[in-house]
Simulated assay, not measured.
Amino acid sequence: MSGPFHVHLISDATGETLHSVAKAAMAQFHGVDIQQHAYTLVRSERQLQRACDRIRENPGLVLFTIVNPKLRNDLVAQLSLLGLPNYDVMEGPVGLMQRVFNAEATTRSGGQHEVDQEYLHRMEALNYMIEHDDGSNLDLGHAEVILIGASRTSKTPTCVYLAIRGIRAANVPLVLGMPPPSQLLTFTKPLIVGLWVSPERLVHIRRNRLTTMGVQNETDYVDLDKVRSEVMTTRRLYEYHGWPSIDVTRRSIEETAAAIMNLLSEHKLAKEEQG
């Protein structure tokens, strides 16, 4: 297949929404040489013209999120003259909502990034995660989710992702040969989820971690037999206490977090039904 194919992303805000949509779509085309060009905070005729000039240099597909009607129409007109395929990523969802809500949409750029109560809630969750990372604070009664697992099982990055979604998440490491913190057995409100990784993958991750730290010595930390025992012990612990567990061996952080959020919804529903 010939290439490269140029994909231009034009946004009047940070471009986060547009980038996420484009990334998800482009991931479906393995082996296709795609070069991405991003233009963010395009809110004036001058900025728009600059973007269009660069598009002329590398013609290709154009995806955009421009809410200002005049800028949007000017962009579409220029792209039509160039004969370039283009798509307004916001047009479909906004148009549908206008029909369902029977209301006109505003033309606020980056409205989703305004400092509102939801934003403050996410910042609170992020601060909570930082204060309760890696078992540093076992006062976890106000957590919504507590992730447990052996070292290097993606507990911290998953908690960060959950916090960005506004969920108060904490994590506690499990160490081979040591009982889990007794506090874990007293919590009734938080959802406790165990994470685990295949022993072979876990050894690989840990070796890379030690290498970046300049450590070359062989230790139980990367001994395959010891790691197998560690993984088996943690999985038995999850099963014994009835804690749901997730194999994160081949999951991305986003996929793990999505699974946890589903478990959290079920957990909250069960709590409500219990009264």
Rank of each mutant, 00 (worst) to 15 (best):
149 G>S: 03
149 G>F: 06
150 A>L: 11
151 S>M: 13
152 R>M: 03
153 T>N: 10
154 S>D: 00
155 K>C: 10
155 K>T: 10
157 P>C: 07
158 T>F: 14
160 V>C: 05
162 L>Y: 06
162 L>Q: 08
162 L>N: 05
164 I>C: 13
167 I>G: 12
168 R>C: 01
169 A>H: 03
170 A>C: 07
170 A>R: 14
173 P>N: 04
173 P>R: 04
175 V>E: 14
175 V>S: 03
179 P>D: 01
180 P>V: 05
180 P>H: 05
183 Q>K: 04
186 T>Q: 10
187 F>D: 00
188 T>A: 08
189 K>P: 03
190 P>M: 01
191 L>I: 04
191 L>D: 03
191 L>S: 15
196 W>C: 08
196 W>L: 10
198 S>T: 15
199 P>N: 06
204 H>W: 04
207 R>V: 11
207 R>A: 04
208 N>I: 15
208 N>Q: 15
208 N>M: 12
209 R>A: 09
210 L>T: 02
210 L>A: 00
211 T>S: 12
212 T>C: 01
212 T>W: 01
215 V>K: 14
215 V>H: 08
216 Q>S: 15
216 Q>M: 07
217 N>E: 06
218 E>V: 07
220 D>G: 08
222 V>F: 04
222 V>E: 04
223 D>G: 00
225 D>Q: 03
226 K>H: 11
226 K>V: 09
227 V>M: 14
227 V>N: 08
229 S>E: 13
229 S>R: 10
229 S>I: 14
230 E>Q: 10
233 T>H: 07
234 T>K: 01
234 T>P: 05
235 R>H: 12
235 R>L: 12
237 L>R: 10
239 E>Y: 06
240 Y>S: 01
241 H>M: 11
241 H>L: 06
243 W>E: 00
246 I>N: 06
248 V>Y: 13
249 T>H: 13
252 S>M: 13
253 I>A: 08
254 E>T: 05
256 T>K: 01
256 T>L: 09
257 A>L: 07
259 A>T: 01
259 A>M: 02
259 A>K: 01
260 I>Q: 09
260 I>V: 14
262 N>W: 03
263 L>R: 12
263 L>G: 11
263 L>W: 02
264 L>D: 05
265 S>V: 13
